[in-house]
């Protein structure tokens, strides 16, 4: 991905040299032309076209924000309820992502999800130990994490 971005910058600079102009707008035009050229030549790269990955990162960011809002509403409900009827527990979640940055992003996402907090990671990076506010919806939470977060992270890291 970084190679394609670098190549795109080089194309934009070549466009600026061809036009003999140093204005920012020339750079933008050159960059857009570079995107077109890279898109046409996309099957010569070993990785996929980089804008797809950029789109996946933006999507992940929006998932982050959405989960932050949802978790705050959940915490407010738990805290301001007159009767404290939470049932905390610690459960283990098997994860499929392997690389360290993926696990870090997943752990951060889970911490910002309603009612869950990552406490520890097993030594072989296969299990996340999560402290949950309410045991009733543990299975639902696991499904949620599997379907939305891990999928979104794998979408980013896919070649």
């Amino acid at each position: 991905m970084s190679f394609q971005i670098l190549l795109n910058f080089v194309i934009a600079f070549v466009w600026m040299f061809l036009n003999n102009s140093r204005a920012g707008i020339t750079f933008v035009i050159g960059y857009i032309l570079g995107i077109l050229i890279l898109f046409i030549l996309r099957r010569f790269f070993s990785e996929r076209f980089y804008l797809g990955r950029v789109y996946a990162v933006v999507k992940l960011l929006f998932i982050f924000l959405r989960e932050l809002f949802k978790s705050n509403i959940a915490v407010i409900q738990d805290v301001l309820k007159p009767k404290l009827d939470i049932q905390p527990c610690i459960f283990a979640l098997p994860i499929t992502v392997k690389r360290e940055w993926e696990i870090t992003v997943l752990a951060n996402l889970i911490t910002l999800t309603p009612g869950t907090l990552v406490v520890d990671i097993s030594d072989d990076n296969a299990l996340l130990y999560i402290h949950a506010m309410n045991i009733n919806d543990v299975d639902e939470t696991i499904d949620d994490i599997k379907n939305t977060f891990e999928k979104a992270i794998m979408e980013v890291s896919r070649l």
């Binding site: 932050l68 978790s71 915490v75 407010i76 404290l84 905390p88 911490t111 910002l112 009612g115 907090l117």
Partner: peptide, 16 residues
């Protein structure tokens, strides 16, 4: 103030 132990308090502190 209201939540009972370190972990549940950490829930409130890290999100809100």
């Amino acid at each position: 103030i209201r939540l009972p132990d370190t972990y549940t308090r950490s829930h409130a502190a890290s999100k809100s």
